[in-house]
Amino acid sequence: MDFSTMNIWCWLIPLLVGVLCAIFGYLLGKGNSTTIDNSADLKLLQDKNAKLQADLDACKGKLTAGAAMAGVGGAVAAAALTTNEKAIPFDAAAAKAAMGKVIKKDDLKVVEGIGPKISGMFIDAGIKTWKALSETSVSDCQKVLDGGGDRYKIHDPASWPMQAKMCYENKWKELAKWQDEHDHGKL
């Protein structure tokens, strides 16, 4: 028996088996391929986005109307806007029931996406309460994050004011549901 012929077969047999497996794998994969239709989900998300955009536009309209009223009526109208707001008392029992843990008043870490370091950055920037965070624009939230350096670029504060408003208004069930439906504050 010639060893050079045997050496060729040691290479040729695994090579042929590999080629045949690749061909069969390709044919099996190609035969099972199906097209996934996500158009219904896409339409649902587009409708949801349109509703949220309409809500945002309505809020901006109210804000503009309030600013115009303050400009027309001067300090009297501005004082009327601020005195109509009453502080909402914090309901710790409802918070614990909905969130499943003890919640401290104005703890910014309750907001999905805010941890201890980011909470400290907001407190240092003068945003110490849920109400203050709820009244902070997303661009101002981003400025606070930008002040922390590159390590905070991955965070998206788009939902933080909305979540803080839910906290301030004791809408704990709604907040818990929203956080369950979103992955780390993202859709």
Rank of each mutant, 00 (worst) to 15 (best):
K62T: 03
G100H: 09
V102D: 13
I103N: 04
K104Q: 09
A67F: 09
K96S: 15
K104A: 12
A125L: 09
V138S: 01
S139I: 08
K105A: 12
D55R: 00
E135K: 05
G113K: 07
S137N: 05
A80Q: 15
G115D: 08
P89W: 09
A132K: 14
V102A: 13
A67K: 08
I88M: 12
D107P: 03
A75K: 15
V111S: 01
T64N: 06
A75N: 13
V76P: 03
V72M: 07
I103P: 03
G74D: 08
A70M: 05
L133R: 01
L108D: 04
A78I: 06
E112K: 09
P116L: 10
A67V: 06
K60I: 00
L63Q: 02
K101S: 14
I123C: 12
K62F: 03
V72C: 06
A58H: 00
T83H: 13
I114G: 06
L108H: 03
E85L: 13
K62I: 02
A78P: 03
G74V: 12
A75M: 14
E135I: 01
V76W: 04
A98H: 05
P89F: 08
L108C: 08
I88Q: 10
A94N: 09
V138K: 01
A132H: 03
D106Y: 13
A70P: 02
V72Q: 11
A58G: 01
D106G: 15
G100M: 11
A98Q: 11
G61D: 00
T83R: 11
K86R: 13
A98G: 06
P116W: 06
K60E: 00
L133W: 03
K96C: 10
A93M: 09
D55L: 00
L81Y: 07
S134D: 01
F90I: 05
M121R: 03
S134L: 01
M121H: 04
A132T: 11
N84M: 15
T82V: 14
V138P: 02
K96I: 12
A94K: 08
K101Y: 14
P116V: 05
G74F: 12
K109C: 13
G100D: 11
W130H: 04
G120I: 03
A77D: 06
K117Q: 10
K117G: 12
K131G: 03
A58W: 00
K60Q: 01
S137V: 06
T82Y: 15
L63I: 01
I123W: 09
M121F: 07
K105D: 11
G66K: 08
A132V: 13
T64L: 05
A68F: 07
F90W: 03
I118M: 09
T136G: 01
A68R: 05
K104M: 09
A78D: 08
L108I: 13
